[in-house]
């Protein structure tokens, strides 16, 4: 039986960075996976949850329980949103037995994009060619809550021509943190500035990551500071590299 794979697009990518989702679909297609998009999904509820408004998060998170009930795999471009499901859904939905069951079912089938490629599809070499100096920012939630540490690096190692330069203090948070960036703008900006400075110091042309929230923050700061580093999601980089690899 064919496995059914749903794209868990996340509200941020859906509205601001549709190209990232499209790159994911193209890459998965090339690996022989057809992707479905259940339109019932809106947002995982994390912004409200992290601000202390769990009830509001629950109401929104239900859209995911419904959207993904019939799928074997759920793949997200964000380790943070996938992490929200893994880390918080079982307790967020513990009041209603039906919801508890759907939440528990959703957890093991929810993957961050690079995790899905490496662990489910067993792919690390996509035949991509990307002859640029690149540095990688590991996002906090993806790496710490979900344990996605090696997978993005394995995929980058499979790209021909790519010169990966280590990012100093890579594991330090970029200062995004959702509402934190708006509530504590000065602290958040100080964190983003340090991150942007380290990125610049690497001399990389491209900053790659696996979470658009963080990349929006670092990219927004880099641009504000007048730095010309290109900021890309891993899926975008791989897809662009695959096109080049073919050409």
């Amino acid at each position: 039986m064919r496995m059914r794979v749903a794209l868990f697009v996340t509200c941020l990518v859906d509205n601001f960075y549709p190209r990232v989702a499209e790159s994911m679909v193209r890459i998965l297609n090339s690996c022989g996976v057809e992707v479905e998009f259940p339109p019932e999904q809106t947002c995982c509820g994390q912004p409200a949850f992290n601000s202390g408004y769990a009830q509001q998060a629950r109401v929104v998170g239900r859209t995911l329980l419904e959207a993904f009930a019939d799928f074997d795999y759920v793949v997200s471009p964000s380790g943070s949103c996938a992490g929200m499901v893994h880390h918080h859904y079982p307790s967020l939905f513990d009041a209603d037995p039906d919801e508890t069951r759907s939440a528990r079912e959703l957890v093991p089938k929810t993957y961050e994009f690079s995790q899905f490629l490496v662990h489910v599809l067993g792919v690390t070499d996509l035949g991509a060619f990307f002859p640029h100096r690149v540095t990688y920012h590991p996002s906090c939630h993806g790496s710490r809550l979900l344990g996605v540490k090696e997978e993005p690096l394995q995929l980058l190692a499979g790209v021909r021509g790519l010169d990966l330069v280590p990012l100093p203090h890579a594991e330090d948070c970029c200062g995004f943190g959702g509402a934190f960036a708006v509530k504590m703008p000065e602290i958040s900006t100080a964190m983003a500035t340090e991150k942007a400075d380290w990125v610049t110091e690497t001399g990389a042309e491209v900053l790659v990551g696996t979470d658009m929230g963080c990349l929006m923050n670092i990219g927004g700061r880099l641009r504000h500071m007048g730095r010309s580093v290109r900021v890309m999601h891993l899926a975008e980089l791989l897809h662009e590299g695959m096109e080049q690899g073919r050409g």
């Binding site: 859906d14 509205n15 601001f16 549709p18 960036a181 703008p185 929006m216 927004g220 641009r223 504000h224």
Partner: peptide
């Protein structure tokens, strides 16, 4: 708090 120090992306023309 965001836009004072960071460029904010515009919504894509089409979700």
């Amino acid at each position: 708090g965001w836009t004072g120090s960071r460029h904010a992306p515009a919504l894509a023309p089409e979700p």
